[in-house]
Amino acid sequence: MGGMDDLYREQILEHHRTPHNHGVLAEPSVSLDGRNPSCGDVITMQLVLDAAGTITDVAFSGRGCAISQASASLLTDELRGKSADEILALGTPYVMELLGVEVGPSRVHCALLGLETTQKAIERWRSR
């Protein structure tokens, strides 16, 4: 069960139990629902961006598996101070690094739900 302990190691379970930046912001610049149609997981990502396009605050809510919730929690810890461009350039390897473990192909979409929703939210904010 070595690999399993890796995937469900303490840090991930901790973020799943008590996710960081979990909740609803009073005045987000943008708020977007993300959904995995294949599995039903839903996440709402809220961002506050300043005029220069830098993230100053972030919150997420939703329901889903430990992998989607923990990766969203870990991601939101890293977003403040990053520019929209920096975030749009992030991809799968970044999320895997945050999780500290390679997620198998059947669960990658869970791990990426937070990042992909954030990126779509930024695109929406830009086209406002």
Binding site: M4, L7, C39, I67
Partner: peptide, 18 residues
Amino acid sequence: HDLATILDRRGVAIRAGH
């Protein structure tokens, strides 16, 4: 989904989702 992943480690294939 977590259940399905953990079961898969024992070769148990179940469906998770809607």
